[in-house]
Lab assay of single mutants.
Amino acid sequence: KLLSSIEQACDICRLKKLKCSKEKPKCAKCLKNNWECRYSPKTKRSPLTRAHLTEVESRLERLE
């Protein structure tokens, strides 16, 4: 599967780190437990900047 097509777990399953069936409108866990089942939009991760990478590398060197 391509990364862009990976389905996201519902908010509660993601928060509780449960295996989500990803069914809509309610996944199996939410249906069974009568929880409100919501699927928040995916958040875009910002790409690493060179400055951040350099900072992490220098912190790693100090720890070694």
Rank of each mutant, 00 (worst) to 15 (best):
Arg14Ser: 07
His52Met: 00
Gln8Lys: 06
Glu64Asp: 09
Lys42Ile: 10
Glu36Pro: 14
Glu61Tyr: 13
Leu48Val: 00
Asn33Arg: 11
Cys20Phe: 08
Gln8Trp: 11
Cys20Glu: 08
Lys1Gly: 15
Cys10Asn: 07
Cys13Glu: 07
Leu53Ile: 06
His52Phe: 07
Val56His: 08
Lys24Gly: 13
Leu48Gln: 04
His52Lys: 05
Pro25Met: 03
Thr49His: 08
Lys26Cys: 14
Pro41Asp: 10
Glu7Val: 09
Arg45Gln: 08
Ser5Trp: 04
Lys16Asp: 00
Arg59Glu: 02
Arg59Val: 01
Lys22Thr: 00
Glu23Thr: 14
Glu55Thr: 12
Ala28Pro: 02
Cys10Lys: 09
Pro41Ser: 05
Ile12Glu: 12
Gln8Ile: 07
Ala28Phe: 10
Lys44Arg: 11
Ser58Lys: 11
Glu64Ala: 04
Cys13Pro: 01
Arg45Val: 00
Glu61Gly: 13
Asn33Ala: 11
Lys19Cys: 07
Leu60His: 05
Thr54Asp: 09
Ser58Asn: 12
Ser58Phe: 14
Lys42Gly: 08
Lys19Asp: 04
Ser4Cys: 11
Lys42Tyr: 15
Ile6Pro: 11
Arg59Lys: 12
Leu31Pro: 05
Lys26Tyr: 15
Arg38Ile: 13
Lys32Ser: 10
Ala51Tyr: 09
Asn33Val: 04
Ser40Trp: 05
Ala9Arg: 04
Lys16Gly: 01
Lys26Leu: 15
Glu23Phe: 09
Leu53Gly: 00
Pro25Tyr: 02
Cys37Glu: 02
Leu53Gln: 00
Leu15Asp: 12
Arg50Ala: 00
Leu31Val: 12
Ala9Ile: 08
Cys37Ala: 08
Lys17Gly: 00
Pro25Gly: 11
Ser5Asn: 09
Val56Gly: 03
Arg38Gly: 12
Lys44Ser: 04
Lys32His: 11
Ala51Met: 11
Glu61Trp: 14
Arg50Ile: 04
Trp35Asn: 11
Leu18Met: 15
Ser5Lys: 08
Lys16Phe: 07
Leu3Asp: 15
Glu64Ile: 10
Lys22Gly: 01
Val56Phe: 03
Arg14His: 00
Thr54Trp: 07
Leu48Glu: 01
Lys19Trp: 04
Ile6Arg: 04
Leu3Trp: 13
Leu3Lys: 03
Ile6His: 10
Thr43Glu: 15
Lys42Gln: 11
Glu36Phe: 09
Ala9Asn: 03
Ile6Leu: 12
Leu60Thr: 03
Cys37Pro: 03
Lys42Asn: 10
Asn33Ser: 14
Leu18Gln: 06
Lys16Tyr: 01
His52Tyr: 14
Ser21Cys: 04
Lys44Thr: 12
Asp11Arg: 05
Arg62Cys: 11
Cys20Met: 08
Ser4Ala: 14
Ser21Gln: 03
Cys37Lys: 00
Glu7Thr: 08
Glu64Gln: 14
Leu2Phe: 08
Cys37Gln: 09
Leu3Ile: 10
Arg14Glu: 03
Thr43Phe: 08
Lys32Glu: 10
Asp11Gly: 01
Trp35Leu: 14
Leu63Gln: 01
Leu3Cys: 14
Cys30Val: 05
Ser4Tyr: 12
Leu18Val: 01
Thr54Gln: 09
Arg50Pro: 00
Asn34Gln: 14
Ile12Phe: 14
Tyr39Glu: 06
Lys17Pro: 00
Ser46Phe: 02
Cys27Met: 02
Ser46Asn: 03
Glu36Ile: 09
Glu23Gly: 12
Leu2Thr: 12
Cys37Ile: 03
Leu53Arg: 10
Pro41Cys: 05
Lys24Tyr: 15
Tyr39Ala: 05
Arg50Leu: 05
Arg50Gln: 06
Glu23Pro: 08
Cys13Phe: 01
Lys42Cys: 08
Ser46Tyr: 05
Pro47His: 04
Cys37Arg: 04
Ser58Trp: 14
Cys13Met: 05
Ser4Thr: 10
Ile6Thr: 11
Leu31Met: 14
Arg45Pro: 04
Glu55Pro: 01
Glu57His: 06
Cys13Ile: 07
Asp11Val: 11
Leu18Asn: 08
Leu15Cys: 13
Ala9Ser: 03
Arg45His: 02
Ile6Cys: 12
Ser21Val: 03
Lys44Asp: 06
Ser21Trp: 04
Pro41Val: 06
Lys32Thr: 13
Ser46Gln: 03
Ala28Ser: 06
Ile6Phe: 13
Lys26Arg: 14
Asn34Pro: 00
Ala28Asn: 10
Thr54Asn: 08
Leu3Val: 10
Cys13Ala: 03
Leu15Trp: 12
Arg62Glu: 03
Cys10Trp: 00
Thr43Leu: 13
Ser4Gln: 10
Lys19Tyr: 02
Glu7Ser: 09
